[in-house]
Amino acid sequence: MFVQFTTWDIVRNLLEGGKWTLALSLIAFVLGGTAGLLVLFLRMARNRVAQALAKGYIELFQGTPLLMQLFIVFFGLPLAGIDVSPWLAAALGLTLFTSAYLAEIWRGCVESVPRGQWEASASLALGFTQQMRHVILPQALRVAIAPTVGFSVQVVKGTAVTSIIGFTELTKTGSMLANATFQPFLVFGLVAAGYFALCYPLSLYAKSLERKFHVAR
């Protein structure tokens, strides 16, 4: 059997895959951001053990390939009796990956808040969580927005790696289409264009935020 693909067929299929790329990116970014906040709190905590744990977590994820992280989730969870689909493994793996990077980015932002702010708020008898919540984070947030948006580009690009564990997003769809159509140049060109369409606006937005922030300072 031989199926003839028109360019439109290819684009339509890729758009379908692109939806999953988008969904996975959003999930990883939102969940990863939430988890990242948690890691950030541990990282900034006065408790030495918490600090060390958070630091190790961050270094582990920043020091190993995303593909290996996905493999370990994908092949590791079943050993604990948890059945994982590629979709779940992809979402979990990318969430962990995102949380480590965001925690580290945000730590830099928190540390850019002058020491005096910690001391002033401590002198008002605020506890650690209150200091973070009312004094430090609101100031760090301003600094954090641009690099956070910038990192979202890395998340979108990271989703491509999940194709290797069999999650059918944009890249996987592209691979299958390239095989079926014998037009890899066209297909991967379109796939690249799809990622570019997702990422470039985010990059531009991050850059404009950065510029705005520097002017405001």
Binding site: A160, F188, G189, Y195
Partner: peptide, 21 residues
């Protein structure tokens, strides 16, 4: 901009599978 806004894996596939065309 082209490189920074597309995944490495796709760049690799494009070079390996696409360029022979």
């Amino acid at each position: 901009e082209a490189i920074r806004n597309t995944p490495f894996l796709v760049q690799l596939f494009f070079i390996f599978f696409g360029l022979p065309a």
